[in-house]
Design a protein around this nucleic acid. Structure first.
Lengths: 189, 189
DNA sequence: TTGATTTCTTGATCTAGATCAAGTGGCTTT
DNA sequence: AAAGCCACTTGATCTAGATCAAGAAATCAA
């Protein structure tokens, strides 16, 4: 069983037949470090599973860059809003390292329901899960200090640390690299 | 046509038949000012459309309260995560004024697909729309000042202002009432 | 290996926004 | 009309975290 199938299984509770069917639509794809998975303004016409490597979701403002999220091995990547509604992507998505993906294009994605009867339910659960994750994130900004937000990210995404430049992690937490540096120092003592 | 049908139509692009069918599952419900729509820890087993009034989504922490959102006339209300996954709600939802709802219970909600073929697609779009709204909100915390966040909320949800105590609006924006007060004063000049 | 970049840390200083504390102006209730 | 109770404003002060600046490490190129 491929990593993709294994992941789909744990996450989606498919049987072996559905697993094979769904997985068969995903095609391997490589992006070199620094390469773009998606540029803002373009429509996101694919959804991918990260087999290895990592991708950064970000926006360029006039005077700085804002990193929205970094997605790593074992997670999916897309601009969900652009994929579902077909509007121009608001995000750039760029590889932070050589990255191996399994990718399904939008046309196939939209037809999954024709082959897997429980796909609509599964897809709903998937998007609802994404929603809940963001809800937690909004709550973290409403209720937590920089240090608390840092600790939660560290506990849940240890793979990011020591692999991703601090400035990107800082940006997605809504703080500066200096602040993370000081939090770390404080926690050494 | 009821307000509910009208709203469903603009939002979901149903035909008249589906509109009637969907709307027929929603039953009128009243909550008095101060009454609870949902208490944290309980499972959310319904979804409602707000006909009039407003509901506040919030959590009680040890030393303070955090308002996550305030939902007003013409919008839906539920703890989506609890409704979809059946887990205990993390939020309290309380009426800030006498509130008239149209409510569908979870059992009926889960059977909508049996009656309206395009329901699964519609539901997906609905949840994806909720996701996108939260994505914007996360971005606002990553990239904007208190004043900018205040202005955007004011432009998009004018009905909240002069109806909702400032402390709740402040909390959902991640700032204090004093800060809003100062932003307002500054903008008078 | 050496220089050139880039990343990370640390210190000094600054500032947006929080906290604390008094007012002020409505609404209710009697 | 007086007394209470809120919600809101304003001022004074404080602080978490930003900004600015300089080094120290690490990474990369050749």
């Amino acid at each position: 069983m491929t990593d993709l199938e294994q992941y789909l299984q744990t996450y989606f509770d498919f049987n072996q037949t559905d697993l094979n069917k769904v997985a068969s639509f995903f095609k391997p794809e490589m992006i070199q470090k620094g390469g773009y998975y998606l540029k803002s303004g373009k429509t996101c016409n694919k959804l991918s599973f990260i087999q290895s490597g990592m991708l950064r979701v970000f926006v360029e403002l006039e005077y700085r860059e804002v990193t929205q999220w970094i997605s790593t091995k074992g997670y999916f990547i897309a601009d969900l809003s652009s994929l579902v509604f077909g509007n121009p992507s608001r995000w750039n998505i760029q590889a932070l390292a050589d990255t191996a993906l399994y990718t399904i294009d939008k046309a196939d994605y939209d037809r999954l329901g024709d082959f897997i009867p429980k796909w609509p339910v599964t897809e709903k659960l998937f998007i609802a899960h994404c929603f809940t994750t963001l809800e937690d994130r909004v709550f973290s900004f409403l209720s937590m200090t920089a240090e608390q937000r840092y600790n939660i990210l560290f506990e849940n995404n240890r793979e990011l640390f020591n692999q991703v430049p601090l400035q990107y992690i800082a940006s997605m937490l809504g703080m500066t690299p200096e602040t993370i540096s000081r939090i770390r120092r404080k926690q050494l003592i």
